[in-house]
Each structure stands twice: as structure tokens, then as C-alpha cells.
């Protein structure tokens, strides 16, 4: 009795769907920024050119790889992991929330660094990058709930 009271079966479906939708939105945002960067296209930013300033700054690439492309890879990985949940052998399935947590944590940390750069170094705010920061933070928070539901009680 005590066991079932301590570990209620979590209703994780809504979280999975929400994380999937957020990851999909992240793929859209980072995919657009990657395309704009690689094709040297101007980023839609209303009347402002801030997005282009951020996208074309020296901080928009690491060793020649666009930061937006790294984001795209991370969001695709998150999307695949969310879709895989419940579809892989149990011994692997249990680690899916941990992988989602790890990737989204990296995303949150790097987004925080990028936001700092935008505010205090580049001196321009890219609303697409802010959108991505919000999306990855939301995925990270949801992953915490997932992790809590699947954590070792000992």
C-alpha cells in the first residue's frame, strides 16, 4: 500500500506531447536561423536589424559551425527522444528522461550565455534567439518533472 502511495503512476502523456510540440517549435526556430545563416539571408525581425547583428556577430559560430545548427541538432535529438519514449526496451527507456534532461540542461546553459552576449556584448536582442531560450527552458522544466517521476526513490 505504502509503495503505491509513494510512487503514483505519473500521467506523463501531456508532458510528452507538450515536450514534443516544444521540440518541434525549436526545430522550426533553429532551422530557420540555420538556413538564414548559411544562405546569408536577412532574418525577419520586424523593423529592427538586431537579429542580423546577432546572427552575423563573431559569436554566431564556433569553429565555423553556426550556433543555430548546434541548436537544430539538439532540438532534433530532443524530438527523437520524446518520440522514442515508451517505444524502446525498458532498460533503455528509463534513461530517455535523463538524456532529455541532459540535452535540455546544456541548451538552457548555452542560451543563458547567448542571452548575456546579446544584452551586454553584442548589444542587440534577437527575438528568434529569445524564443529558442524560452522553448528550451520550458523543455528543461518539463524534463525535471519527468526525471522526478522516474527517479530512484532510494
Amino acid at each position: 500500500m505504502r509503495e503505491s502511495a509513494s510512487y503514483p503512476v505519473p500521467a506523463i502523456d501531456w508532458r510528452r506531447w507538450l515536450m514534443g510540440l516544444l521540440a518541434l517549435a525549436g526545430v522550426g526556430v533553429s532551422g530557420y536561423l540555420t538556413w538564414a545563416h548559411l544562405a546569408n539571408q536577412s532574418v525577419a525581425c520586424g523593423q529592427s536589424h538586431d537579429c542580423d547583428i546577432v546572427q552575423q556577430s563573431v559569436y554566431s559560430e564556433i569553429g565555423g559551425i553556426p550556433v543555430a545548427l548546434l541548436g537544430l541538432v539538439a532540438y532534433v535529438a530532443l524530438l527523437v527522444l520524446v518520440l522514442l519514449k515508451g517505444r524502446v526496451p525498458e532498460e533503455l527507456d528509463v534513461y530517455v528522461p535523463l538524456a532529455v534532461f541532459g540535452i535540455s540542461l546544456m541548451g538552457v546553459l548555452y542560451s543563458a550565455y547567448l542571452t548575456y552576449l546579446e544584452l551586454y556584448v553584442i548589444y542587440a536582442i534577437c527575438r528568434w534567439c529569445v524564443s529558442s531560450a524560452i522553448i528550451i527552458t520550458a523543455i528543461f522544466l518539463l524534463s525535471l518533472l519527468d526525471l522526478r517521476a522516474g527517479a530512484d526513490p532510494s
Binding site: 535523463l98 526525471l147 522516474g150
Partner: peptide, 18 residues
């Protein structure tokens, strides 16, 4: 069985990932 299923992720594993 239920608790065993949920014993996949330990605190030390989380700390390693962090």
C-alpha cells in the same frame, strides 16, 4: 515490479549528467 521499474535513474547518474 513498479518500484523496480522506477529505479532506473539514481541521483549519482543525474549528477554525472549535470
Amino acid at each position: 515490479r513498479r518500484p523496480r521499474q522506477q529505479q532506473g535513474i539514481s541521483t549519482s547518474q543525474i549528477l554525472i549528467v549535470v
